[in-house]
Amino acid sequence: MIKTPILAAVAMAFAGSAFADEMEYMPPVTHAATLEECSACHMAYPAGFLPAQSWRVMMTTLEDHFGENAGLDEETRAEIEAYLVANAGRDLSGDGAVPQRISELPWFRHEHEEEVSKRQFEKAKSWANCNACHERAEQGIFEDD
């Protein structure tokens, strides 16, 4: 009985805090095929960073995946799409937009603008390379480092 108000207060603090707004934690990918296939070329980004409609489009356009062919056999492709869609994030745009690059989302730009030095970016080489700066990105932790 004593625990309930504390838990509620903690939950409210998290839900309403900058912690949630700034996307500093997002549950990491746990699905084996998604982990294996996506992280062949980049960290397997958490499904919650994009809404379901984005993953559906991405997973049916793998022949041109940001300028490269990332085609998969149909069984693996469908399995990964189902996982990503089931664990997708909210549609933050509210208008059914279908963003593809996480790095072009307003919250991402806001969080990285003026935060990332030229030297840091040169080290990371690409906005795709989360774990170059966020050492615990693969555990879903994207706090400012």
Partner: peptide, 17 residues
């Protein structure tokens, strides 16, 4: 572009990996 000119050395994907 990604594998580099010397296959005995590591390359770099466009993602920085």
């Amino acid at each position: 572009t990604c594998h580099g000119a010397d296959p005995r050395a590591a390359g770099l994907a466009r993602t920085g990996k």
